[in-house]
Write a protein that binds this DNA or RNA. Structure first.
Length: 469
DNA sequence: AACTGCGGGTTGG
DNA sequence: CCAACCCGCAGTT
């Protein structure tokens, strides 16, 4: 069940058998088909900081990754993590952002650009067609994840809140005032606001400036979980809840499974920092709600410290590998059937696989564009994306069924198949030679980059979670 | 203030 | 011609 479509195809599959669960952190050359009712898809959301890119094709929305903002000195946060801010999408705002100092050590901030697609930023394409929203990603992020959009927003609002309240209560007891605020919101909002209240880079900034000293570790890790849980569960990620494995934004958590699947040998377990996470996963924190996994991940992040010590080094490598691995791979390896294993969506997890992480084969050429698609023809009612998003009411049940039934059937097989190929044929090719897109595309995707620094990076991870502060 | 999407325009391959 | 990218505009959040 090979993916039979490309975002540029004049004619996309009609009436897809099933819709994928929304993926917040798509990575690699993957494709998904979301329901046109999926809110996150409608908004073209992504955990990665993606900015709109003009491809002069109004049928296909193209976005490119802005990378991640880190501390130039890659200082360690109280929890041992590194700062990984979400780059502002707006150019102007981003420039401002970069002028600010690291909230933790006060040194400069640095924007690590994404070069995961042949040296260029990873690109995401969105296209609405009928009842489906087709999504295609090209490139493998070669940098840590920034905060998710929700986290960034939460942090921002928390900062605002803090600032205003701080000013008001400044004379009294700034410290307590902050703590108090953490309890005044109710319900869902509470979850969202707790986190920011408790952590977030800004808080650190505040801490520094006001000499607050709240040990990050003393905060309940669960709050991270809540941050994700609330918004995702209650609002945006409903679909995810339906699948056995939620589209956890953090691939690392699932690594063990997919990887062992694919390669049979979970070497990463011993060679990567995962063990740490894994261990954390078993902590009581997780249990019930699948989304807790997200939280646990964050927790794990907090506890693990290693890594990422030398960002400079990593980034350097990354740059290098960006070139080497550049080629493109095709995306066809994608496991879009992943609904039941959203995880597989083909991505990051596998990069932690044995040895070379998966990247795409350098053989293929990069097909980044959305060239003109003459599909106007078939798309008579080319509405705006948002237009017909709301008129499909009966899709949900259908979607669910599809997820449960057809979703999982192929993923395993397909994956193996793909990786087998990748492994045997594509993995070690360095040859930057580009081949013709057309066919190469058919070939498979996902080979790991040879020296994927990112893998290392991510693996150890320390992606900064606001909570860490 | 930022985000988001649009679209004109430029540049380099 | 293609793809990346810059810039401003306008509607939202």
């Amino acid at each position: 069940m090979k993916l039979s479509w490309d975002i540029n195809d004049p004619k996309l599959p009609q009436e897809p058998k099933h819709f994928d669960a929304f993926q917040e952190w798509p990575d690699g050359y993957v494709r998904f088909i979301y329901s046109s009712e999926e809110k996150n898809a409608q908004r073209h959301l992504s955990g990665w900081a993606m900015r709109n890119t003009n491809n002069h094709n109004c049928q296909i929305l193209k976005k490119s990754c802005l990378g991640v903002v880190v501390c130039a000195r890659s200082c360690a946060m109280p929890g041992g993590t590194r700062l990984q801010l979400r780059p502002a999408i707006c150019d102007k705002a981003r420039q401002k952002q970069q002028k600010k100092a690291c909230p933790n050590c006060n040194s400069a901030l640095e924007l690590i650009p994404c070069r995961g697609h042949s040296g260029y930023p990873v690109t995401n394409f969105w296209r609405l067609d009928g009842k489906a929203i087709f999504f295609q990603a090209k490139g493998v992020h070669d940098h840590p994840r920034p905060e998710s959009k929700l986290e960034a927003e939460a942090r921002r609002s928390a900062v605002k809140k803090h600032m205003s309240s701080f000013h008001h209560s400044q004379k009294k007891r700034p410290l307590n005032s902050e703590a108090g605020r953490c309890h005044d919101s109710g319900g869902y909002a509470n979850n969202l606001q707790n986190l920011p209240c408790v952590d977030g880079p800004e808080r650190v900034g505040v801490v520094a400036d006001t000499s607050f000293s709240i040990p990050a570790q003393s905060y309940p890790l669960l709050q991270n979980t809540d941050l994700y849980k609330a918004p995702y569960n209650s609002a945006s990620f409903q679909e995810d809840q339906l699948s056995p494995y939620p589209a956890c934004p953090n691939p690392r958590i699932y690594v063990p499974r997919p990887c062992s699947y694919e390669f049979g040998v979970p070497t990463f377990i011993s060679s990567s920092p995962y063990p740490t996470f894994y261990k954390d996963l078993t902590s009581p924190v997780i249990d019930a709600d699948p989304f807790s996994l997200n939280g646990s991940h964050y927790n794990a992040v907090t506890t693990s410290e290693k890594s990422f010590d030398d960002p400079g080094r990593h980034y350097g490598l990354k740059a290098a590998w960006g070139k080497a691995s550049s080629g493109d791979r095709s995306d066809y390896g994608q496991m879009q059937t992943s609904t039941s294993h959203p995880y597989y969506s083909g991505e990051s997890p596998c990069r932690y696989g044995p040895s070379p992480s998966p990247i795409a084969s350098p053989l293929q050429t990069v097909i980044t564009t959305t060239t003109k698609v003459s599909y106007q023809a078939y798309k008579p009612s080319t509405l705006k994306y948002s237009d017909n998003l709301c008129d499909v009411k009966n899709l949900q049940s259908y979607t669910h069924m599809a997820e449960n039934i057809s979703g999982s059937i192929y993923s395993g097989m397909k994956i193996q198949e793909d990786f087998g190929i990748v492994k045997s044929a594509l993995l070690y090719q360095h040859d930057p030679t580009k081949s013709k897109p057309a066919e190469s595309v058919e070939t498979y995707r996902y080979g790991p980059p040879l020296g994927n620094s990112y893998a290392e990076h991510e693996g150890q991870t320390l992606r900064f979670e606001s909570a860490e502060y």
